[in-house]
C-alpha cells in the first residue's frame, strides 16, 4: 500500500514573550497507508493538532519533510481538492444556516450544489439545514464540520476529534461512516480521545507524546507489545486456587471475583494443575491490554492517586527517547470453559 501521508523529522517551535520558546513537535514521524483508518493519539498538548495544522498548510514547520498524497507539503494546494479535513473545534459564521455555510464552501471549491444535500443527509442534518449555526448544539456543529469535510468526496479524510459532542447514536454513525469510507478506498486519519472507538475502528495507530512519536503500527501489534502474560480465571474457591498456584511457583492474586495468575507460558498447565486438585475452571482468559492502558503507560499519563493529571508542558532539554521496536504479533488464546471436565 502506498503512503498517503509521510512525515519525517517534523519540528515546530512557538515563541512568546511570556513563555519563551516552546517546542510543540520535536522530530515527529508518521506514515499513513492508503485505504487505512489510522488513529492518531496523544495527550492534550502533545502536538497532535499542531501536526495536523502543519500538514494542512495552516502552519509552517521549522524543519522536517511532509508529503500528502504524494505531493510535498509546499505544494499542498495541488492536492487540496482531494483532502477533506476537520481541525480542532470547527468555527462557522453563527448568522449563516448550515446549508448556507456548505453552499459557500461548495461554491469556493467548485463542488456541485447537489452535493450539499447529500452530505447533510449523510451526517444527519438534513432536517436542520435551514437553522442558523448559532442555534446548533456542539454535536450539530461537529456534524456540520464532518459534512464540510465530505463535500469534496475526498481521497483522504483528516478528522480531529470527530466525535466531540456527539451523542451515542452520532458516535455509532461516525464509526460506521469511517468504516464505510475506508471500505470504499478513502484513507482516514482520525485523532480522538475515545480510545475504545479507535481500538474498534482503526487499522493502525501512531501515538505522540511531547512532540515525538512514542509508538506506531497495527493496533493488534501495539497491544500485543504490551501484553502482561497474565491470565484471569474464575474458579469456585479462589483462595485455594491462589495458594495452589503460589505453591507451584507462580504469581497469583484475587482480583474482584477472579484470580489473576502470571508467569505461565501455557494456559493448559493452569487447567491441569487446578484440575488435579479438584478445582474446576469456569473461565480462563488471557489478559490483553486495551488501548487505553497502553496509551496511559506509553505516554506516562496514568493518573496517580492524589495527583490530578496536568496537561503536558513540553520540555526541550530531554533527548528524544528511543522508540521501542515493534514486537512480533502474539496470539492471545482465549479459553472459556463452562465444563468441569479436566482438559
Amino acid at each position: 500500500m502506498t503512503a498517503v501521508i509521510e512525515i519525517s523529522g517534523l519540528r515546530k517551535t512557538f515563541s512568546s514573550v511570556r513563555r519563551g520558546r516552546q517546542t510543540a513537535l520535536d522530530g515527529f514521524d508518521m506514515e499513513v497507508r492508503a485505504g487505512q483508518i489510522h488513529g492518531f493519539l496523544g495527550p492534550n498538548g502533545s502536538g497532535k493538532t499542531t501536526t495536523l495544522r502543519t500538514l494542512l498548510g495552516l502552519m509552517r514547520a521549522d524543519s522536517g519533510t511532509m508529503r500528502i498524497l504524494g505531493a510535498p507539503s509546499e505544494q499542498y494546494a495541488t492536492v487540496a481538492h482531494r483532502v477533506g479535513a476537520i481541525v480542532e473545534s470547527p468555527a462557522f459564521f453563527p448568522g449563516f444556516s448550515g446549508r448556507k455555510t456548505l453552499q459557500i464552501l461548495a461554491t469556493a471549491g467548485g463542488v456541485p450544489a447537489a452535493r450539499v444535500d447529500e452530505v447533510l443527509t449523510t451526517v444527519g442534518l438534513r432536517d436542520r439545514a435551514e437553522d442558523l449555526v448559532k442555534g446548533y448544539s456542539l454535536g450539530m456543529r461537529q456534524r456540520l464540520a464532518v459534512a464540510s469535510a465530505l463535500l469534496k468526496q475526498p481521497e483522504l479524510l483528516i478528522l480531529d476529534e470527530p466525535a466531540n459532542g456527539l451523542d451515542p447514536s452520532g458516535i455509532h454513525a461516525m464509526r460506521t461512516l469511517m468504516s464505510d469510507l475506508a471500505a470504499s478506498g478513502v484513507t482516514v486519519l482520525v485523532s480522538s480521545h475515545l480510545l475504545a472507538e479507535i481500538e474498534q475502528v482503526c487499522d493502525s495507530v501512531t501515538i505522540i507524546s511531547r512532540g515525538r512519536r512514542i509508538t506506531h503500527g497495527p493496533v493488534a501489534q501495539v497491544l500485543a507489545g504490551h501484553a502482561t502474560g497474565e491470565f484471569r480465571l474464575q474458579v469456585a474457591d479462589s483462595s485455594a486456587a491462589v495458594r495452589l498456584l503460589r505453591d507451584a511457583g507462580r504469581t497469583a492474586r484475587v482480583d474482584g471475583g477472579f484470580v489473576v495468575v502470571g508467569g505461565v507460558d501455557d494456559p493448559a498447565w493452569i487447567t491441569q494443575k487446578l484440575g488435579e486438585a479438584g478445582l474446576w475452571l469456569s473461565e480462563l482468559v488471557a489478559i490483553a491490554p486495551d488501548l487505553e492502558s497502553v496509551f496511559l503507560d506509553l505516554t506516562e499519563t496514568r493518573p496517580r492517586p492524589g495527583e490530578p493529571p496536568q496537561v503536558e508542558d513540553v520540555d526541550t532539554t530531554d533527548e528524544p527517547a528511543a522508540e521501542p521496536a515493534p514486537p512480533p504479533v502474539a496470539d492471545s488464546p482465549v479459553i472459556d470453559l463452562d465444563s468441569k471436565e479436566p482438559a
Binding site: L56, V87, F92, F93, L105
Partner: peptide, 18 residues
Amino acid sequence: GAEMSSGGLINLLLWRPQ
C-alpha cells in the same frame, strides 16, 4: 476580521490553501 477571529477563515483555507 470576523472570519479570522472566529476561525472561519481556517475552513476556507482548507479548501483554498493559496
